[in-house]
Design a protein around this nucleic acid. Sequence first.
DNA 1: TGTACATCAGTGAACGCGCGTTCACTGATGTAC
DNA 2: TGTACATCAGTGAACGCGCGTTCACTGATGTAC
Lengths: 214, 214
Amino acid sequence: MTPSRTGSRERYRAQVREEVKQHAWEQIATAGVSALSLNAIAKLVGMSGPALYSYFASRDDLITELIRDAYRSLADTLRAKFDAGADISVLAYAVRDWALHDPQRYFLIYGTPTPGYQAPDDTTAISSEIMSVLIEAFAAQPSPTPATPFDTHLETHSGWAAGHPVPPRTLHQALSFWTRLHGVLSLELAGHFAGMEFDPALLFAAELETLLPH
Amino acid sequence: MTPSRTGSRERYRAQVREEVKQHAWEQIATAGVSALSLNAIAKLVGMSGPALYSYFASRDDLITELIRDAYRSLADTLRAKFDAGADISVLAYAVRDWALHDPQRYFLIYGTPTPGYQAPDDTTAISSEIMSVLIEAFAAQPSPTPATPFDTHLETHSGWAAGHPVPPRTLHQALSFWTRLHGVLSLELAGHFAGMEFDPALLFAAELETLLPH
DNA sequence: TGTACATCAGTGAACGCGCGTTCACTGATGTAC
DNA sequence: TGTACATCAGTGAACGCGCGTTCACTGATGTAC
């Protein structure tokens, strides 16, 4: 009500944008990103199709923003946990929870890439924020695992981790954390373990175990 | 020419079906499965849109057949290699080559699932054929790695591998083979290592190494 | 070898749909004096 | 407190598009006597 100096219109705009995104996520969860339709969302929000164009420049623009938000959400989650003292194991389960909470959001980031789609710069920046947390977390724990040829390779190919003066072994651990957990999670979420009676959570735990000092 | 007893019309039909699939794969490789269009394919094949309906019942039907073919191709590749004496390491690189050869085919199987899509029974059968080869391959090599809690869990949850009287440890190895290699491959193919200078092939090799007796 | 018939591949028109997006315009909301 | 003006959210009509799919029909191909 009180038309504040910072603009009540702006607050309203932000609110509508959020509501649109909310419905967009629901559509993605229900039928996948390819079924996302601006007109359908508009109807759900209670507006006419064209009205959305004053909130988002285009359909692709909306999707890009959802991707950005997804990266941000994961990065912030991990950063917060780590700052609160979480170790590798806790971070692993944070990733797992995050993924299980909304599988299609997970796949929007880590699933099938659209050929030709070029991610904006800032999402790759957020992506490397995630790597940073992992590297810091591994740097903070003992690393008894022996060095491999890949570690030697990393000695001369670690410019991407320049901000982190850690041994290659640590970078390798962060990469393996990422790939191993993604391996279990994405197959689980995609239903590839259906028909096998085992509990995916235990396979996840077993993979995590391989990443910890024993 | 010689109208044979087995039917030259049938041979022709099979030929057209193959040609249609060929173009379908090209479309998928170029713009992803969601961009696959029957009318566009028909044009490429030199026919009218509706003509395809005597070859495939529907668009979904065509896609399902492509999925089936993809599974078949991977299963046959691995089975052939194994029968020719391949060990775990060779099988791993066979998977990698298969994936790199046509990333979108790989993602059609192992990528983002379409919510609500129910895979036909025979594809899950082929999928378990793939697991069979892996289990047999691990059963044929020494397994010095120590047992884990997940192995104990598998003792009572391995009905899905009933055809293979092997210790749970072997099943676990086959599962880890699958998840670890998929982890590296799918992130690599999706471009998530872009910007990092290391060679994904070496990370793949390092992950493979963890699966071998050392 | 030739004719009569059945089969079937492919066409073209049509249906209905929903999509993204543009544009000119209306009515309400906030701002300034 | 009241009026005059600028801003801006949202509408409705329209454009053009391509999609999957159906249907009645034509012309060619193969089959049987």
